[in-house]
Each structure stands twice: as structure tokens, then as C-alpha cells.
């Protein structure tokens, strides 16, 4: 409380007040609730037809704005690489005693690890049909590995293997895009595979492939991040 009442606090409040007022004056003009967004409307109307994916979010993420998705994959990749690079080069390593995990955690880890993996895989393989997708699936897989580190001390992800999967799936994504450029009407990341039947697992062209690659990549990346952070704290 004393902090807020100080001069600095007052200045901060004042600045924030102006900024909030400014932003709200802009927000106030946005016509919420009305289908004003031309682009959004078109996605709703044509999405299914254009992309063959019943999950419209997927059709936007992997179709209309696939380049953003590729970009986000890169962002995650950079973050993971950067983290491990900084952690690897920084010299300060604190030696700490590690306590063994409890029996419950150990047992639970063994049972749940494959199940979580499976669920993660489901999320990204099925991403074009039901809610879910590559990022979500990958995050779930990453959590499975976190569990392993918590429960089964001593077991580790092979950094090389994780790196290889990460690398290959990322390359695969770009490669798919380049194939689209080559095969499908000279557009990068165009959906050049047949759309197939609606609601089938193998449908919507390259979307499932993209999601699988993203899922693998994100999963291995999270695993790698967890690994490098554990490595750091050891």
C-alpha cells in the first residue's frame, strides 16, 4: 500500500490511467456482438468448403493463416534453442541434493506416461476434426515428459533424439509447404492433397500432416526444454 501511495506509485497510476482511458476509448468503438468482421464471416461461410476441415479453427490455423503457424512454430523453436544455449553456456551451476520421488509419484508416472502420450497424439492427429491440434497435443506430450523427470529420476530424454525429431518435423513442415509451391498451383503452403470425405480421419489434405509434424515438434521441444532446465538445476 505504501508503494502505491509513494510518488512513483502515483506517477505509475497516472500513466496507467491515461493509457487505460485511451485504450478504452478505442475499445468502445468496436462493434462487439455484430458480425461486422468481413474476414471472419467469410471464414465461417467458406471454411468447410475451402479446406475440408470441420474444425474451423484448424482451417484458419493450418490453412488461411498457415504462415503464422509456421512462424509460431519457429518462435517456439527459437525459444527452446535459445534457452538451452543460454543455459549451456552460463557458468553458474548449483549442486543440489535430489530427493527421491515418492512411491505414488513413481507408480503413477509409469502408468500415466503412455496414456498421456497417447492422449497427446490423439489431440494432434484428430486436430482437423475435433477441438485440439498440434500445439495442444505437443504440450500434452511435453507434460508427459515432465512427469517422467519428476517421477523416475535417472531416466532422461535423449537430447539428440529430441533434437532430431524436432529438426525433422520442422523441416517436414517447411518441406510440405514447398511441395505445395511445387505441386499445388505455385502457392507456398497450399493444400495440394485431395480434401477427401468430410469427417474422415484422412481428409482435409495436408492439415493432419501439418498437425502431426507440429505435435511431434512441440512435444519434443517441450521435452527438450524440461530437460535443459532440469540439467541446469542439478
Amino acid at each position: 500500500m505504501r508503494d502505491i501511495l509513494s510518488f512513483r506509485g502515483f506517477v505509475a497510476l497516472f500513466l496507467l490511467g491515461i493509457i487505460v482511458a485511451g485504450i478504452s476509448s478505442a475499445v468502445g468503438q468496436i462493434p462487439f456482438g455484430q458480425p461486422d468482421s468481413e474476414v471472419g464471416q467469410l471464414y465461417l461461410e467458406n471454411g468447410l468448403q475451402d479446406t475440408g476441415a470441420p474444425n474451423l479453427v484448424t482451417s484458419v490455423v493450418a490453412g488461411y493463416r498457415a504462415l503464422d503457424t509456421l512462424g509460431e512454430v519457429v518462435v517456439l523453436f527459437v525459444a527452446a534453442t535459445g534457452l538451452s544455449a543460454v543455459l549451456a553456456t552460463s557458468k553458474r551451476r548449483v549442486e543440489r541434493e535430489l530427493e527421491d520421488a515418492s512411491l505414488v509419484l513413481k507408480t503413477g508416472c509409469r502408468i500415466f506416461f503412455p496414456l498421456i502420450l497417447l492422449f497427446g497424439a490423439y489431440l494432434f492427429i484428430h486436430g482437423h476434426l475435433t477441438p485440439g491440434g498440434g500445439f495442444q497435443g505437443g504440450a500434452v506430450i511435453g507434460s508427459a515428459f515432465l512427469l517422467v523427470y519428476l517421477g523416475c529420476s535417472g531416466r532422461r530424454v535423449s537430447a539428440d533424439a529430441a533434437g532430431a525429431i524436432e529438426s525433422l518435423s520442422g523441416f517436414g513442415f517447411v518441406f510440405l509447404g514447398l511441395l505445395g509451391l511445387l505441386v499445388g498451383g505455385s502457392y507456398f503452403l497450399s493444400n495440394f492433397l485431395p480434401k477427401g470425405d468430410l469427417y474422415e480421419l484422412i481428409s482435409a489434405g495436408i492439415f493432419p500432416l501439418i498437425y502431426i509434424l507440429i505435435g511431434l515438434k512441440v512435444g519434443s521441444e517441450f521435452a527438450g526444454i524440461v530437460d535443459s532446465m532440469i540439467e541446469e538445476s542439478k
Binding site: V11, A12, A21, G22
Partner: peptide, 16 residues
């Protein structure tokens, strides 16, 4: 950070 917010606030203030 205060500089960043101050600039933002100043320009907004002018407009408001």
C-alpha cells in the same frame, strides 16, 4: 519501462 509507458501516455493524452 516507465519511459515506454510515459511516451505512450503522452501521445495518447495529446490525442484525447
Amino acid at each position: 519501462v516507465a519511459y515506454i509507458l510515459a511516451l505512450l501516455a503522452a501521445v495518447l493524452l495529446v490525442q484525447l
